[in-house]
Design a binder for these strands. Structure first.
Lengths: 117, 117
DNA sequence: TCCTTAGTTCAAAATTCATTGAACAATTGG
DNA sequence: CCAATTGTTCAATGAATTTTGAACTAAGGA
């Protein structure tokens, strides 16, 4: 019933960065922020990726300390751990979220990183 | 002679995040910051990883827009693109660098991400 | 010129990560 | 109770990433 989450002080920077470095997860986090940091059910994100894949990405976000997820009935409610992240890495989340504004869709982002050598 | 670098406005957020999400590269960037943003030669980082592997990571950093590298003689001088990053993603670099303070060594960081489910 | 220094490139191996479909579990409404 | 809804887990696959060693280039000093 209760899902494991890292405590605030054991949230790891490289971990958070690489978790947020995935375009699908970044889109999830941006949407969460747009929804006032949640809570939001998993199915809310179904336009971003498949159900099974969503499970995977939401687990990554939770395990890295970026989100909090809590089960209730057949649903799971996810929130952004904004206060915890701000305490652990002041300014990080804000600057990341600001950067998601001019972001193309995750699909485009995934394709469009050709660097000419 | 001249190495390719992305222009400031085409630096991609997910790209920067995943590039910085690697502990070895984060250590390189932290060291660069400690050295006043450089310039610093490649060999300066040889205590962090092998020469050949360093080539790989420095290329990633350069291609993502995090660093600038310029050849001179048999050496290459690398600097942090702090001003460009600040313009593109205000506050991001500062908060990341602040977070590297309490960072364990890259090796430890690589090993120590066991999440109990 | 020869040797050393600085760093790269290439191909292979090892690892990790993301995505999928099938099967499953649990809760809830009718 | 039955069926639908919500979401998970598992195993497989494919794709990217990281790491390594060997061979290489280019510049500079003796």
């Amino acid at each position: 019933m209760y899902l494991p989450h890292p405590q605030t002080d054991q949230i790891s920077l490289p971990n958070v960065l690489s978790v947020l470095g995935d375009p699908t997860r970044l889109a999830i986090v941006a949407e969460l922020a747009r929804k006032d940091d949640g809570p939001v059910t998993c199915s809310h994100f179904l336009d971003i990726c498949s159900k099974t894949n969503l499970s995977y990405h939401l687990a990554k976000l939770r395990e890295s300390g970026v989100t909090h997820t809590e089960a209730s009935g057949t649903s799971r409610f996810t929130t952004l751990r904004r206060a915890d992240l701000d305490r652990r890495f002041p300014g990080l989340l804000d600057s990341v979220l600001a950067g998601t504004g001019d972001l193309a869709s995750p699909a485009v982002e995934k394709a469009g990183n050709a660097q000419s050598a």
